[in-house]
């Protein structure tokens, strides 16, 4: 009932059971995330193998430098997240808060860069739909940009949710809700964040780098 006396929820017998349940819970949830992105990856594999030239040509209109830079930003955020989890495990409150804040800032930088890329696609008329205009390209290039926006868009939505989760964790950490014995939520949030990072690890080469040679 009250979290003041105990951090173990009433349905659990002890802290270990609670910990096992939440760890398994987030991993099962991540499986559902794999399958959700999986639908888009299936579409990608099918169309990429059907129209390799059109996709390679369209991919040249993405900014590989920004994509690579954003990859580094996201990897850095995974590092700071791992450091935050580590700090929470050793019971360092300020270490946890610092790691989480750095992660949030890096996440926002990533989203900012992404927003800039989206904006330039709008200016270049590369957004699929009635205004799509890529002179001299095959019609399938619009398919590429549909997938580009769907995949990176879904990823960005996950980033926004992640930033919200981490912000909640910062508030909880400041309210002294965590210590060396109880820091489950930080670990759970970390696992989610790393998963979102992994999705990008695949998106970057598949979308930005194919057919560069």
């Amino acid at each position: 009932m009250s979290s003041r006396t105990s951090t173990v929820a009433h349905q659990f017998d002890d802290a270990e059971q609670q910990r096992n349940a939440s760890t398994l819970g987030i991993w099962v949830f991540l499986v559902t995330e794999i399958m959700m992105f999986g639908g888009l990856f299936t579409a990608y594999v099918l169309y990429r193998s059907s129209y390799p030239e059109a996709f390679a040509a369209a991919s040249h209109h993405l900014n590989a430098t920004l994509g690579a830079a954003n990859t580094i930003v996201l990897l850095s955020s995974s590092l700071s997240m791992a450091l935050a989890v580590r700090a929470s495990q050793v019971g360092s409150r300020w270490g946890t808060v610092a790691g989480l804040v750095v992660t949030i800032v890096l996440g926002c930088i990533f989203l900012g860069v992404k927003g800039y890329e989206y904006a330039s696609k709008f200016e270049e008329n590369l957004v699929p739909g009635p205004f799509f205009d890529l002179p001299g390209a095959e019609p399938q290039s619009e398919l590429f940009f549909s997938l580009y926006f769907a995949m990176t868009g879904l990823h960005a939505v996950h980033m926004v949710i992640g930033v919200g989760v981490l912000a909640t964790l910062v508030v909880m950490a400041l309210r002294r809700r965590f210590d060396a014995d109880y820091h489950n939520p930080v670990e759970i949030g970390g696992l989610y964040w790393h998963f979102v990072d992994i999705v990008w690890i695949y998106l970057f080469p598949l979308l930005y780098l194919l057919g560069r040679h």
Partner: peptide, 16 residues
């Protein structure tokens, strides 16, 4: 490209 990405993903999964 997919192999390198998978290697990176495994590092994140196993360590981070």
């Amino acid at each position: 490209a997919v192999a390198i990405a998978t290697l990176k993903a495994m590092l994140v999964i196993v360590i981070f």
